[in-house]
Computed example of a mutant assay.
Amino acid sequence: MQHLAYQPLLPTGNKYLQQKWDKASYDLHRRKLEEEWTMKIQRENNMLMEKISHIMRTTGGVDNKNYCDRKSLGKEKRQLELLRITKENQMILFRLSQCRPHYSVRSWHEDWLKTLKVMDSIARYPRGRAKQQTEQDKPNKQISGCEKEQKISTDATTHSPASSKTNGKTGSEKNEKKKETGKKQDTATEIQQDTDTHPVP
């Protein structure tokens, strides 16, 4: 009953016979394809066997080796250019090593001394006083504890009424001394600011 469901490509009078004929031609076609496929596989296998046997008989060298040397067309030109550049660099280095300095340090020093003289003439207070003041203040800061106690004791004796009588100093004289010391401190701070704005080289 399968022949009834079969749909032939061409119109036929008997579907059953047409199915048998088509099936026979299809089977023949398949056998031919399989024979070609097996022949191809056999041929490739034979080639592989020959290659393997050749490798086993010989050292097995690669047959695609290229014995040609790689040559560059611009190699000589590049080498000549490199030699020229190195010679020019050596000449420039020789010139730089042989040349003398254009500026003189002595003239710069003389100009700096002149500027210092001008700064001293323009300044309100003489230069260098601030350094002397700081050098004098440094030893006073490094006083030991015993000296501090002695100072306190001497201050206590001077502030006592008996000592004030013996010394014969009045309160007005002390106030004047305090004012003078305050003025000295103000001048010292101004000198320090002047040296900070115009440092000594």
Rank of each mutant, 00 (worst) to 15 (best):
L82D: 05
L93S: 08
D120C: 03
S164A: 14
S144H: 12
Q90N: 07
D120N: 12
K141G: 02
E147Y: 04
Q193S: 02
K178C: 14
G13I: 01
Q133N: 01
R31Q: 15
L82E: 09
K165M: 05
Q185A: 11
L33W: 04
L73W: 11
N140Q: 14
K151S: 08
P161E: 14
G145Q: 15
Q193A: 04
K32W: 11
L33E: 10
L93C: 12
V62S: 09
K32Y: 09
S121Y: 10
P11W: 00
T170H: 08
M119V: 02
H29R: 13
Y103M: 12
E34F: 00
T134P: 01
K148P: 04
L83K: 04
H109I: 09
W112R: 12
Q2F: 07
Q185D: 06
R57P: 00
K32E: 13
K51D: 04
T59N: 15
K165N: 05
Q18S: 12
L93Y: 00
A188W: 03
E149V: 02
P126V: 00
G171S: 13
T166L: 12
T189G: 01
M91V: 03
Q90R: 03
Q185M: 05
W21A: 05
L96F: 07
G128F: 00
E81F: 02
S160V: 03
N140E: 05
K15P: 12
Q132S: 07
P11K: 03
A156Q: 13
S107G: 04
E176C: 08
R57K: 15
Q98N: 01
K174Y: 15
R106F: 13
T195A: 13
S121W: 04
E135T: 06
A162I: 06
T58F: 08
H109E: 15
H159F: 13
L96E: 02
D63C: 01
K184Q: 15
L83I: 09
E173I: 12
L116N: 04
H109Y: 02
E110D: 11
H3A: 10
S164Y: 01
M47S: 05
R43T: 08
G182H: 10
M47F: 06
D155P: 01
I191E: 15
R95Q: 06
E135Q: 10
Q2M: 12
E44M: 08
G61I: 06
C68N: 08
K138R: 13
T157A: 09
L10T: 08
N167D: 00
I143S: 07
R84K: 11
E180V: 07
E35D: 00
Q7G: 04
E135N: 09
T166C: 08
S163I: 06
Q2L: 05
T189I: 06
K75C: 06
R95T: 15
E50S: 07
P161T: 01
M49L: 15
M56A: 10
A156W: 06
D155L: 08
L10V: 09
L48Q: 14
Q42R: 14
I191N: 09
K178S: 11
A123H: 15
I122A: 13
S144C: 12
D69R: 14
M56E: 11
P8D: 07
E135I: 06
L82R: 04
K20V: 14
Q150K: 12
E180T: 02
R70L: 02
P126D: 00
S72I: 04
Y67N: 07
Y26L: 13
K141W: 08
Q79G: 06
G74C: 09
V118M: 11
G168A: 07
E44Y: 09
L28D: 02
K183E: 07
K183S: 05
S172G: 10
N64L: 09
